[in-house]
Structure formats: C-alpha cells, structure tokens
C-alpha cells in the first residue's frame, strides 16, 4: 500500500485533534485531543520512516510516547488540582483573570 495514504490519515487525525482542542470545553477532553495530535505525529513519523527506509522516524516515535506519558503526569496533576478546588474541569469556568 502506498505509504502516502498513511500520511493523509495522520493529517486527518491531527486535524480532528486540533479541532477538538478548539471546540471541546472539558479540560480532560481537550487534553485527550492533544494526545491524539501527538499520536498523529507518531503515525506520520513511522510512515516517513518507511518511505525513506531509515529508522530515525521510528526512534522518534518512542521519544514522543515518553514525552506524551510525562505530559500526562504533569497535565493530570494540574487538571485534577483545578477540579478539586472548583468542582469543575470546564475550561470556560476558569476565567478569574478575564477582563
């Protein structure tokens, strides 16, 4: 199968993730959409790796997974602490500093 099709899929997943970040209001869901974007990047890396016949892209995919895991640790800690003090994880409610 032509590897370019995987790139179209990666771009599609990335766009779905980016759209989700912009339109969803729950911080957890927004964060999951970011993770979807990172996984779309992984798919693109692996597809390009296959296309070029070198392993760089596959190695980078591993690094991305580790970064995504570290981001989950930090992100959930922050979102949970916000949820516990406000009883809401909506990004619209977090507007103390709005002018």
């Amino acid at each position: 199968m032509n590897p370019v099709n995987y790139l179209y899929l990666a771009a599609l997943l990335f766009s779905i993730g980016a759209t989700g970040v912009l339109i969803r209001r729950n911080a957890i869901v927004v964060f999951m959409c970011v993770e979807l974007m990172l996984n779309a990047c992984n798919l693109a890396f692996v597809a390009f790796s296959r296309l070029h016949g070198n392993l760089d892209g596959q190695i980078i995919a591993f690094f991305t997974m580790v970064v995504a895991a570290a981001e989950v640790v930090v992100g959930l800690a922050i979102i949970v602490s916000l949820f516990r003090s406000r009883h809401s994880a909506s990004v619209d409610d977090a507007s103390l500093m709005k002018l």
């Binding site: 964060f31 970011v34 922050i78 916000l82 003090s85 977090a94 500093m97």
Partner: peptide, 14 residues
Amino acid sequence: SQEAAVKYFLLGAF
C-alpha cells in the same frame, strides 16, 4: 495560580 497553570499547560501542549 491553578487557572494560570491549566491555561499554560493546555496551550503549551497544543
């Protein structure tokens, strides 16, 4: 402060 962190985190990750 928590609100600032959530905003910075979500936008930074984006």
